[in-house]
Computed example of a mutant assay.
Amino acid sequence: MSKTPYRIKRAEHPAELQGAVQAQALSWQQSYGDLLAPELVEARQHEGVQAKRAMDWALASQEGVWFWILMDSRDNRVVGVANACPRREPDAPAILELAQIYLTDEVKGTGAADRLLEMTVGDMDCYLWVLEGNERAIAFYRRNGFELDGARRTNEELGAAELRMVRHQD
């Protein structure tokens, strides 16, 4: 069995957050082409949009939000990002929300997503929102103990429906 070339660490420097934003944008391009309007996916690719997002993430990290990044050890490129936060809805089914987990296509299928999820939320009860129709993501979350709970919302910013998935560890 060969050692994976990917490592996970907490993003601590602006360059790492910038790399995380770029990985997220690439992941959107690779994963959401058929699920979102092309202009929304394209907007994530613009340098100004990425610079603002990196600044927002840097401020959030100064306020205690941890961004976990998946790096390719061969060239130190960020190829994935994840973070969790306290629930953002008062009626949420758990106190922890997996706010995001994005990986570029080159990493999918390597097991790195499982490790990134474990690092981000451990074995805690949590919930997340996933784009309706993103069957690969839904299958990944199911494999990791999440189930659809019937909640559905329209994300106005994206113009798309999202489904809620919940994991309760007993």
Rank of each mutant, 00 (worst) to 15 (best):
R164F: 00
A51F: 08
Q22N: 06
W28Q: 06
V21S: 04
V41K: 03
Q18L: 12
E162V: 04
Q24T: 07
R88E: 12
V166A: 06
C85Y: 02
Q169H: 14
I8S: 08
Y32Q: 12
E12S: 11
Q45L: 14
A113K: 10
L117A: 06
A11Y: 00
E162T: 01
R77V: 06
S61R: 11
V49T: 02
L117D: 05
E157W: 00
A151Y: 05
L96M: 06
N134S: 03
Q50S: 03
L103P: 07
A11G: 11
E97H: 04
L116I: 14
I101E: 08
V41T: 04
G111R: 04
K108E: 11
T104V: 13
R44W: 08
R142N: 11
D114F: 06
G64V: 14
Q45N: 07
M165W: 02
Q24V: 06
E39C: 04
D91W: 01
E63W: 01
T120H: 10
P90E: 11
E162G: 02
V166R: 02
L103D: 07
L40T: 02
T4W: 00
A160S: 07
D91M: 09
A112S: 15
R74P: 13
I69V: 15
E47Q: 08
R7L: 12
R136G: 07
A15F: 07
S27P: 07
E39K: 02
V21P: 03
R115S: 14
R167D: 15
G19V: 10
T154H: 00
N155Y: 00
R167S: 13
E89A: 08
K52S: 10
Q62E: 14
L163Q: 01
